[in-house]
Amino acid sequence: MTLWLGKAPLILASQSKARQTLLANAGFAFESQPADIDERAIQQSSELSAPGEVASLLAREKARAVSARRPGQYVIGADQTLALGTRIFNKPAGRVQAADQLRALSGHCHELHSAIALARDEKILFDHVSIARMTMRQLSDAEIDAYLDEAGSAVTTSVGAYQLEGLGIHLFERIEGDHFTILGLPLFPLLAFLRSQHLLSL
């Protein structure tokens, strides 16, 4: 059963297991198709530096790229940036870079900017950026090493080297923001838009 009323399947332009799980748990039947865009090249050519603007741009480009291949279908694009002050983080390339990121974030409050966009036939119909503020507790080098030992290669799959829904919860002392924003798919504004377009049965 699905709450989706569109004539064709909804498409999620992401391979993120967290985003897929959020959408499935919300009662959507959907298909996933990666956008396969060069995110860093798009970001650099845009000359944007504000983390929310970068996330919004990439979410829109992902949605457009997949909608070009799936005419007539609604496509969700999503992106998330992590910012500590003016510094924007990308996914760490390996354990050494993950440790460097955790040392930089340790004892500080950083922001997650989660963007979502909905496209159809390469036209953006809706986009939105939500922000969550995450305060990481002060971590010793021994604690960082212990975390990296336990988390393994998963640390390279998300910015900041953590998944809050997993072992990453041990790194934090305070969180301000909703669950969906933190996991990279701000559902509340998306659901409100879909309802306004009579695309949901609930």
Rank of each mutant, 00 (worst) to 15 (best):
E150T: 02
G52H: 08
A104L: 12
Q163V: 09
R70I: 03
A8M: 04
S114D: 15
R137N: 12
G77F: 00
G27F: 13
Y74D: 00
I116Y: 09
Q197C: 10
S32M: 03
S56Q: 12
F172N: 02
A18W: 03
G166S: 04
S130D: 08
T156A: 14
K123W: 04
T21A: 06
A13P: 07
G184P: 10
L22H: 04
A68R: 10
S196M: 02
I144M: 10
A117L: 04
I42R: 14
N90S: 09
L187M: 01
L191Y: 13
L171H: 09
L171Y: 04
F28C: 10
L84M: 03
G160W: 11
K62G: 06
A119I: 01
L187F: 02
H170T: 04
T86L: 14
I37V: 14
S196P: 06
R19M: 13
L185R: 10
F89E: 00
G72L: 04
Y162C: 07
A13D: 09
F89S: 00
H113T: 01
Y162M: 11
Q33N: 03
G168A: 08
A41I: 00
A99P: 05
A161S: 06
S46C: 11
A59W: 02
L22P: 08
E150V: 01
Q20G: 14
S14A: 12
K7N: 15
P92H: 00
R60H: 01
G107Y: 09
E173R: 03
A50K: 13
P51C: 12
R64W: 11
E143M: 15
H108C: 11
A93P: 09
Q97T: 00
S46L: 06
S153I: 00
H179Y: 14
H113C: 07
F188A: 07
G85E: 11
G52P: 09
G72N: 02
P189Q: 04
K62T: 03
Q80K: 14
L58Y: 05
G166D: 02
H110A: 06
I144C: 14
K7F: 14
S114K: 13
W4H: 04
M1V: 13
H170E: 05
R69L: 06
S140R: 11
L200S: 13
R174C: 00
A35S: 04
E47D: 13
D38H: 04
Q73I: 00
R174P: 01
E143V: 06
D36M: 15
W4I: 01
F89T: 00
L12C: 07
Q101C: 04
D79C: 12
E122C: 02
T2H: 15
A41L: 05
E39T: 02
L10Q: 08
L22T: 02
G52E: 15
A41Q: 09
K91L: 08
M136F: 12
A50R: 12
G160K: 05
L118M: 10
L84F: 02
L3M: 11
G177V: 02
A115D: 06
S46F: 09
A192S: 11
G160P: 15
V75C: 11
S49T: 03
P189M: 13
E47T: 11
F193G: 07
L185A: 07
Y162E: 11
A50S: 11
D100T: 00
S32D: 05
H113K: 03
A151R: 00
A59R: 01
I76N: 12
Q163W: 12
R70V: 05
I175N: 10
A18F: 07
A13W: 09
A142V: 08
R40C: 15
